[in-house]
């Protein structure tokens, strides 16, 4: 290769970006001021996310920032990440009341009492970036895939828009981009993590309830988190190899 990776990224990035301010932002970030963006090698990373339900306050910052960062349309009702509120009554733990008004973006108006023996809590949701993802399994053409660094992505130039992957996701994390007519989903802010930044949702989470972790980096706090917490994934019986590790996940959550 005659040009190095950063140069290459910069050039493709510039070509793809239409507004000059955004191009400038990219150039700035690539210049490495936040953290020196290293020569990123896909084989050296394997991404996961940790969510601490005991820290989530349901402020909706994550869902809001995700839409800002990724240009997810505010209307209609699509979300790459959203926050659910669970309300579990002791007599019927299998049938919780769940709501997620506008994905949690506008907050959660007080609805339940805290003193009637029931419990309520928030559960942030996003793509599980499964290691054996059912969505990539069913894609007929290879337009969605697990990247070598463990992120499930969509190739928007190649996707047919057949919607089979949307059907196959057990967690409801996919939708069809109403403008581009292709599948869309959380990219784990792939454009950020490759530059050494954290995801937009993690960046704005005020309590640190969300953190991304690089499972291939021995110094990443993810290992300490997984060692010291009793973690669980969503719908473990689906055996999707989910890499979204929850601490404090209640049995009623699905």
């Amino acid at each position: 290769m005659t040009i190095d990776r950063r140069e290459f990224l910069l050039q493709t990035g510039k070509l793809l970006i239409l507004t000059s301010s955004a191009a400038a932002a990219l150039e700035y970030v690539l210049a490495g001021t936040p953290e020196e963006a290293p020569g990123y090698t896909v084989a050296d990373h394997y991404w996961a996310m940790m969510i601490d339900i005991e820290k989530c306050i349901g402020c909706g910052n994550c869902a809001r920032a995700c839409k800002e960062e990724n240009g997810v349309s505010r209307q209609p009702y699509y979300f790459r990440t959203w926050v659910e509120r669970y309300h579990v009554r002791p007599e019927e733990p299998e049938l919780p009341d769940v709501d997620s008004p506008n994905g949690g973006i506008d907050g959660f108006p007080e609805k339940y009492r805290g003193d009637d023996g029931s419990k309520s809590f928030f559960v942030p949701k996003l793509c599980n970036h499964c290691a054996h993802s059912p969505c990539t399994q069913v894609c007929p053409v290879g337009a969605t895939f697990e990247s070598p660094d463990g992120v499930v992505l969509v190739d928007k130039k190649y996707c047919l828009g057949c919607r089979y992957c949307v059907q196959a996701c057990p967690y409801g994390c996919r939708y069809i981009d109403p403008d581009k007519k292709v599948a869309d989903k959380c990219t784990l802010c792939y454009h950020r993590i490759r530059k050494g930044l954290t995801t937009a949702c993690c960046e704005v989470c005020p309590t640190g309830a969300r953190q991304i972790g690089d499972l291939k980096d021995p110094n990443d706090p993810v290992h300490e988190f997984l060692r010291t917490h009793k973690t669980q994934v969503l719908k473990p019986h689906m055996a999707t190899g989910s890499k979204l590790y929850y601490n404090g996940l209640d049995g009623s959550v699905r």
Binding site: F8, L9, T12, G13, L16, I17, A22, A23, A25, L26, Y28, V29, T33, P34, E35, V42, A65, E68, E69, N70, G142, A143, T144, F145, E146, S147, P148, L153, V154, D155, K156, K157, Y158, T187, Y190, H191, R192, R194, K195, L197, T198, A200, E203, V204
Partner: peptide, 25 residues
């Protein structure tokens, strides 16, 4: 290149501009 997909699409996804600069900046 890496699997059953267009290898180039990795760089294409990564080329998206950033909206949140990060606290470091």
């Amino acid at each position: 290149l890496y699997g059953h997909y267009r290898g180039d699409s990795l760089a294409e996804v990564a080329a998206q501009p950033v909206a949140y600069a990060g606290r470091g900046a």
